[in-house]
Simulated assay, not measured.
Amino acid sequence: MCGRYTLLAEERDIQETFGLSDGISEYEPSYNVAPGQNVLSIIHDGKEKRGGYMRWGLVPSWAKDPKIGYKMINARSESAHEKPSFKSLMARKRCLIIADSFYEWQASQDGKQPKRIQTEDGSLFAFAGLWDKWQQGDEVLFTCTILTRDANTFMQDIHHRMPIILPKGKEADWIAPTVYRPEEAQAFLTSLTSVPLKAHNVSTYVNSAKHNDPECITPLTSN
């Protein structure tokens, strides 16, 4: 799964990396992005890419209670094309969720050790995501979820699941303004190659979503 991540890049770097022509309204870096917060996402509106914020935790358009979003921060890519909550979104509401690392907790006899995981070159990347619009009366929510897969060889010793990181050159394909059959979108995800990763231990300070400062990412002296 993916329950926390970081986004520390400069706004200009995000624009250049993902080909955004406009600025990002109210952009704020974060050392500890958590479920329920607004997260930077990119969609294609049929004319151009657009960057903006959605709440992390999917609330399907048909949901009666928006609190369901706290249970839907992740979606299993292996079955998303079959599930009522995600099937139509796989076809037409795909998004990028922008990050530069994510956290995972490795179980051990001494408890759970948080690790910060980055791409091998430390660059910006995009999680494969899905989004939806929920409305009840005057209340409108735009929300999203991160797609996950079985852990690759690198991640297997840390956790059995991992978020899907789109390889460079595949981000635009994922959000292309094309209506896929859900099975086609699932096949696209299955075809992706793994992005090389690296990791280091960080303090349990990051366990609290209230903490959002450099201490969250500071490497421990021993790994």
Rank of each mutant, 00 (worst) to 15 (best):
E78K: 04
I146T: 09
N74W: 13
A151G: 00
L166H: 09
Q135D: 10
G137D: 00
D121S: 15
N212A: 14
F86I: 06
D121H: 13
N74M: 00
A199W: 00
T190V: 13
A126W: 04
F127A: 09
K198T: 01
H160V: 00
I158A: 10
V206W: 11
S88C: 08
L147Q: 01
K198W: 03
I73M: 14
L197N: 02
E120Q: 15
L124P: 01
P196I: 13
I165N: 12
R149Y: 00
A151M: 01
I117K: 11
I175K: 11
D150H: 13
G137K: 04
A185M: 01
E82C: 05
Q186W: 03
W134A: 03
T153R: 11
S203L: 07
K168Y: 12
E78Q: 02
K170Q: 15
T153W: 09
S101Y: 03
A99P: 02
A128D: 07
L89E: 06
H211C: 12
N74C: 14
I73V: 15
K133I: 14
Q106P: 06
S88A: 11
T178D: 10
K210C: 11
T193Q: 13
P114A: 09
I158F: 11
L189S: 04
S108H: 08
T148K: 04
K115E: 13
F188V: 06
Q156D: 14
R92C: 10
D132E: 13
S79Q: 04
P182H: 00
N207W: 05
I117M: 07
L166Q: 11
E82W: 02
L192Y: 02
Q135W: 02
Q106C: 13
D110I: 01
S85G: 10
A75T: 03
E78H: 02
A187H: 07
